[in-house]
Computed example of a mutant assay.
Amino acid sequence: MSAPPAGRPLPVVDADSAPFWAALRDRRLMVQWCGTCDRHVFYPRALCPHCHAELAEWVECSGSGTIHSYTVARRPAGPAFAADVPYVVVLVDLDEGVRMLSNLVTDDVDSVRIGARVAVRFEDVTDEITLPLFEPAPDA
């Protein structure tokens, strides 16, 4: 595995997000923690969006959450995604209090519901990039 499917964009790894992407390769979902205001922060950044303190600490998340919103894509977002339709784009409220945009992996796109419990799963896209996707929680 060294290249994503043809035409698929890859995330840009920068200094702020490098610890996030490195943890995903190890099958760990990490977010930042602000020790000044005691809040989790996502997406990766240099300053806390709540109190503007510098962010340096990373903490592991449970990977569990609930669906805040979703859409079912029945037309691909370009030719590189044609084989995936229909697919679910999901906004997940993680139990740690941050919201993450991703995909929900399911064989039944019509059963997806707001408020449903989900769990993270990891998809290796290249040797360097692993994506955090979600699936219905096993106990849901």
Rank of each mutant, 00 (worst) to 15 (best):
T106H: 03
T106V: 08
D38L: 15
E96P: 05
V92A: 00
E135A: 12
F122S: 07
E60G: 05
A46S: 15
C37L: 10
M100Q: 06
V89H: 08
D26F: 12
F122G: 02
D95L: 06
T71V: 12
Y70K: 09
D127N: 12
E128S: 11
E96C: 09
R113P: 03
N103P: 00
P136E: 04
G35S: 13
F81D: 10
W58T: 03
E135T: 12
C37W: 01
L101T: 07
R121C: 07
L94C: 01
G115V: 05
W58K: 01
S102E: 02
Y70F: 12
P136F: 06
V92H: 04
G97Q: 09
F81M: 13
H40L: 13
L94I: 00
A46H: 15
L133G: 03
H68Q: 13
T66W: 10
C51W: 01
P76A: 10
D95I: 03
P86E: 04
E57C: 11
V118A: 04
M30C: 11
W33D: 08
Y43A: 10
A119G: 14
A82G: 09
R45P: 13
V112M: 09
Q32M: 06
E123T: 02
I129N: 01
P79V: 13
A116I: 00
I129Q: 00
W58P: 03
V88G: 02
P136Q: 08
L94N: 08
R117E: 01
V125A: 07
D26G: 13
E96L: 08
V109E: 02
T126Y: 03
L133K: 02
C61G: 00
W33C: 08
F134R: 00
V72H: 01
S111P: 09
R39I: 14
M100D: 07
